[in-house]
């Protein structure tokens, strides 16, 4: 019964997302205004040995942002945080040969627990960007960039369609 409830939330979340116009996720008004950032844009050179935050990243530090990404394999079974990667690392064996991995990952600290979604699902994460080294009190791991107070939604993906057409849902 309660698992059903959990699923219901997942479905309800997805449905609300589908209902809301365009790529704006359901719910908060701040989400509509938060600027979108790409994980790769956070650093001047994601492939550099010594990662330096870009101007875009520094400007948005402490502000609400939206980031697209994929959930990396879970570090802890208890999902109050997860790691967001720019590519679906669990399902794309060729994606992670890139030198930038795993420097350009973001630790997403969830506001409240959310259902686990497939690792191949694109996510849209809403939250506050936090830069600089910090130690996670629960795991003892150091992170460089985080999205705090976050919520995520499954991003809408395009349905397959014939050549020459604009696919629906894109």
């Amino acid at each position: 019964m309660l698992l059903a409830r959990r699923r219901f939330f997942a479905v309800a979340g997805g449905a609300a997302f589908a209902l809301s116009a365009g790529s704006v996720p359901f719910g908060s008004a701040r989400a509509a205004t938060a600027p979108q950032v790409r994980i790769g844009d956070l650093y001047i050179d994601p492939n550099a040995e010594d990662l330096e935050f870009s101007k875009v990243a520094n400007d948005l530090n402490g502000k609400p942002v939206q980031v697209y990404g994929f959930m990396a394999p879970p570090l802890k079974p208890d999902l109050h945080f997860f790691v967001l990667a720019s590519m679906p690392l669990n399902t794309c064996p060729f994606c992670d040969t890139a030198a930038s991995w795993p420097s350009d990952i973001l630790v997403v600290q969830l506001r409240h627990r959310q259902p686990v979604v497939g690792f191949d699902q694109a996510l849209l994460v809403n939250g506050r960007l936090e830069l600089g080294e910090a130690i996670d009190p629960d795991t003892g791991f150091v992170s460089r960039a985080r999205i705090a107070d976050a919520e995520y939604d499954v991003a809408k993906v395009a349905k397959p369609c014939a050549f020459g057409q604009t696919c629906p849902g894109a």
Binding site: A72, V83, W101, P102, V107, F141, R144
Partner: peptide, 13 residues
């Protein structure tokens, strides 16, 4: 026991 999130993923990799 890795020291950082990034190290955890890079070692796994």
């Amino acid at each position: 026991k890795p020291a950082t999130f990034a190290a955890a993923y890079s070692l796994r990799q």
